[in-house]
C-alpha cells in the first residue's frame, strides 16, 4: 500500500459519503443519475467476486463491503425510497447505459489478462467503471445548475482515479513485476472524461460562484 493508493481509496470513500450525505440531508436525488449509480453497483459486484475467495487484508475486505453496500443502498434509495425516488430526474437521465455494459463486456472478452471467469469480469468492471460516469455528466449538462454536494461528489469521484494513476506509476518503478496496463489505460480514459468538469469546478471555486456547465 502506498500513499497514492491510500489517498485514492479515501477520496473514493469521501465521494460515496458526500453522495449519501446529499441524499440523506436533502431527502432528494435531483441531479444524480440513477443509471450511473446502477453501473457503479455492477462495477463493484463484478470486480469483488474474489471477496469470499481471496483474503488480502482486513482493510481490503472492509472497503469492498463498504463500496458494494453503499452503491446498492444508493440505487435502492433512488428506486424504492418513497420520498427520495420522487426527486429523480427520470426524463433527464436518458443515457442508454446498456450499450456501455454490452461494449465493456465484449471488450473484456477480447482484452483481458487471462481468459478466466473472474479475470474477464474483473476486466469488464475496469472498462465499465471508466465510462460509468457518462450518464451522470450528460445529466449534469442537461440539468444546468448543480447543487454543491453533487459537484463535490463528482469532483472526488474523478480525483480518486487520478490518484490511482500516480499509484500505478509508483508501483511500476518500485515493484519489479508490476503490470496493470489494463487498469492504467482505462484509468487514464476515466480521468480524461472528467477534464472539462474539473475545469468548470475549478472556475466555480476560483470565482466563488455556483458550478455552471455550458448547456
Amino acid at each position: 500500500m502506498n500513499i497514492f493508493r491510500f489517498a485514492g481509496d479515501m477520496t473514493h470513500l469521501i465521494s460515496v459519503l458526500v453522495l449519501l450525505l446529499k441524499i440523506y440531508a436533502t431527502k432528494s436525488c435531483s441531479g444524480i443519475s440513477l443509471k450511473t449509480q446502477e453501473l457503479y453497483a455492477l462495477v463493484f459486484l463484478t470486480r469483488y467476486l474474489d471477496l469470499l475467495t481471496d483474503f488480502i487484508s482486513i482493510y481490503n475486505t472492509v472497503m469492498k463491503l463498504i463500496f458494494i453496500a453503499s452503491s446498492l443502498a444508493i440505487v435502492w434509495c433512488m428506486r424504492v425510497h418513497p420520498i427520495v425516488r420522487r426527486s429523480y430526474d427520470k426524463d433527464l437521465d436518458t443515457f442508454r447505459h446498456y450499450f456501455l455494459v454490452a461494449a465493456s463486456f465484449i471488450l473484456a472478452l477480447l482484452v483481458n489478462e487471462k481468459f478466466g471467469f473472474q479475470e474477464v469480469f474483473w476486466a469488464f468492471s475496469i472498462y465499465l467503471e471508466a465510462v460509468a460516469i457518462l450518464p451522470q455528466l450528460v445529466l449534469l449538462q442537461r440539468s444546468g445548475n448543480v447543487d454543491n454536494l453533487t459537484g463535490h461528489y463528482i469532483f472526488f469521484l474523478g480525483a480518486y482515479r487520478a490518484l490511482y494513476i500516480l499509484n500505478w506509476i509508483y508501483r511500476y518503478f518500485m515493484e519489479t513485476h508490476f503490470s496493470r496496463w489494463i487498469a492504467c489505460i482505462a484509468g487514464l480514459v476515466q480521468t480524461a472524461l472528467y477534464a472539462d468538469f474539473f475545469y468548470y469546478y475549478y472556475i466555480s471555486w476560483k470565482n466563488k460562484a455556483k458550478l455552471q456547465l455550458p448547456a
Binding site: 473514493h12 488480502i56 469492498k64 515493484e175 487498469a183
Partner: peptide, 10 residues
C-alpha cells in the same frame, strides 16, 4: 505485497 496476478487493489 500480493503475488503476481492477485488483485490487491480496490
Amino acid at each position: 505485497t500480493a503475488d503476481e496476478g492477485v488483485k490487491d487493489e480496490l
